[in-house]
Every structure is written in structure tokens, then in C-alpha cells.
Design a protein around this nucleic acid. Sequence first.
DNA 1: ATGTAC
Length: 492
Amino acid sequence: MSEKPLSVEIKKITPYLWEIPKKGGMLVPGRIYGDEETILHLLKDAEEKKGGGFTPAIVQVLNVAMLPGIQKASIAMADIHPGYGFAIGGVGAFDIDEGVISVAGVGFDINCGVRVLKTPLDKDDVEAKKEQFANQLFRDVPAGLGSTGDIRLNSGEIDEVLIKGAEFAVKKGYGFPEDLEYIEENGKVQNADPDNVSKKAKERQFKQVGTLGSGNHYLEVQWVKEIYDLKAADAYDIRKNQILIAIHCGSRALGHQIGTDYLQTLSEASRKYNIPIRERELVCAPFKSPEGQRYFTAVNCGINGAFANRQVISHLTRKAVQHVFGIDMRDIALLYDVGHNTVKIETHEVDGVNKKLLVHRKGATRAFAAGRVEVPAAYREVGQPLLVGGTMGTASYILCGTQKGMEDCFGSAVHGAGRAMSREKAKREWRGEELIHELAHKGILIKSRSKSGVAEEAPGAYKDVDKVVDIVHGAGVNKKVARVRPLICVKG
DNA sequence: ATGTAC
């Protein structure tokens, strides 16, 4: 726990992949996807924080490499930046028997993720009714800190959401059964036990199903500007100029409360099981311990809660599209839904042997390649869609998983641009009102109840998403399919 | 990220 002087050695493996050699208490090396600029930024950040403050992201990668049971490498994707305990963009895979489970490896916004809806509209259709459409979405989709939805759940139903995820929402009339096929895990992970979720977490959940939340969460109307991979785009059924709608949100207060509750549990477990912890934020428990299992079955409830949330928001979105453009809701299909704050049991090859691993992805998306049974049949020949959220002023991407990604980083992807600047600093640097004005000038309508929230999310506070995507594409672990640009952004 | 906080 004491402050140790920083001495991080980092080696270039390829122009897009760097390695922190295994030394000291590290059980595996650290591996970071990035270019020279990424690494320089990380080292500079580490140097500045030598005197204290938050642990730099590069040290967080190294800390994770010391956790018991870690396999192959402690990995960070190209959108790496400092997070709680684990770096955001961090991927840590652990042996099921010897390994640990960590709250920080998932993050507090459990199963925060992105889903994308495909509309039959073109860019021109939306341009013609942009203001009206933006207002409709802003009215229909609850957004902002403490926002509540129309659904009120009784206690039995809360448990049902936690067990059934998106399936519960569909059963209640939000969306269609065929949506479930296009959600990672079909919108419902197993091993979810509501008995291990506190009463407080459940109480915080009951009015929040179908709400966007705040921070970097958003609903964005986008148009497809470029297609890079025709075969994959065909399989995903997306085309140039088409209007897509991206929904980025998570498990709201439910996930946050589960994280808070289990941080305490795992803190005690770390001591009980004598796990060497370099910093307080990285507390964890052996996965097979009772404490580890309790967290796992609780985090799965959070994961299902987030799936249900995005499912309900999809319905509200479809209704708004139907209202403004007279389009049948059934003609708005789901492209895919992926979480980027998760922990899952997955099979991966380690030293030539298929092994069940516990994979933590914190600000990293699962990115399975062609052929994996987890990928929906319609996409199985090209690989899983990866939904990468950029910033409200720049671009977002649709990528697909690759075999190299399966081999090198447990089938993982970047999840966004990645912050380059803290929220505090961004608020000092920009004014929400001015940003909204500037973006309107560029043809991007922002709808938000919080001006300071907009400033925190200023495009300039993030890394360049094009560069971040070029890194993982260049490294061969994620493949470019399409690039989209925003037209309307509804924010918390 | 979160009804801004041991």
C-alpha cells in the first residue's frame, strides 16, 4: 500500500503493441495496445502523479499483473486511461480455480454497454425533421442524474429483472423476442442470484429501468459515413447513409450499489485469504471462495439489470421513430448489444489448451471472432460486431472481432475513444452552452439537462477515436467495418 | 458511473 517510486520499463513489440516485462511481483507481463503517442501520454501521466493522487493507468496494468491466477498478460486496449483499481480499457483473465474476482475489474457501472438499432431511414430523412426528432427523443427517453422511468416494479419483479434481464423487458412488451438473439448472452447471463443483492441496491433499482443516466451515457442518432468492410457490413445489414441509433448506458444505481456493497465484502476477503494487494482499490477474493461466488452471482444480476435497461430504452426509441417518421417499430432491428464493464466465464486457448477463464473487461468490449458459437448465426461468418462509442462531436465505429484478437487479448476490443482529460479539468476548459452552440454549427444537435455534464463530455476531453481505432485495427485484434457520424445526441 | 463523499 505504501507509495513506491515509479520505475516502469516498457518495450515496443510492434508499432501498436507494447510490453511491460514481467518483474518484481508480476506473474505475467503487461501488454498495452497503443502507438508512440499513447505510450508517451501514459508515461508522462505517470511521471506527473509520482507525488500522489490517482494511480496512473500504466501502474494499474502492472498491479493487475500481480493478482493470483492471472493468465498470459495484464492487457490494456488502446483507449486506456486511469480507472478505479483497474485501468479503463483493462482486460484481466484468471484461472477459474486459482484466480480471483475483483470489483474494480468490472467497474461500478456494471455492464455499461452500447447497443445499436438499425433504422430504414437515410441521413436526409432525419435532416428534414432533426429538431422535431431530437425533441421527441429527449421527451421520451428519461435522461440525467437521478432520472426515473415509467416502470414501477414490485419486489418479485425486481428479482425477475435481475434473473431474466432483457427477456423480462420483452415479456413486459418492450421490444420483440427476436431482439434477444442480437444481445450478447441473449440479454441474460446465468448464475444471477438476487438473494446476494442488497435490499438497498434493489430499492435504488425499482424506478430506474428504462433510464439513460448521466455522465458519458447517451442516445445518439448517427449516419453511416463510411464502410470499410463490405462483407461484414452486408452481414450486419448496414449501408452507407443509413441512420443508426446508438444507446450507451448501464445498470444505473443498481450496479453502483452492488459494487459499493461488494467492495467491502472483497476487502475483508483479501485479508482473510491473504491476497497480496498493492492498493486498496484492487481488493479481490478467490473466485471459488464463498465471497467470490457471492460477488459473481450479484454482479450477474447487475449485468442483467443493464440488459433490461437498454431493452426498455430501445422500445422508447422505436416509439419515437415511429411517431416522427411513421415507421413501423418492427422495421427497426437490433444490430447488436455489447457490455463493456463485465466479468464472465469464457473458454480461451492458453498454451495450446482450451481453458475456462474468468475474464474481467473494464471499459473493454468482448470481441469474438468468426466461428464462435456465442456470435449470432447471421454474423458468425464475419465475427461479432463491436460497438465503439466516440464523442458527441466526432465519430463512432462498428468493428468486428478477429481470430488474432482471440489469440492475443482474449477476444477483446476498445470500447470508445477513452478520456484524455479528467472531468474536473474538462469543466474548467469548456462551457456547455458554447459547446452546444459549436456543435449545432457542425450539424450536431445536443439535448441535455446538464450544461456542466456537456462540458465534462467535450469532444476535446477525449482521445482521437480515429487514432484509437486505427491502433487496434493495425494491431489486427479488431477490424474496421463502418464509421458513423452523430446528428443528434441526447445526454444525461 | 452514482440520490457528489466516512
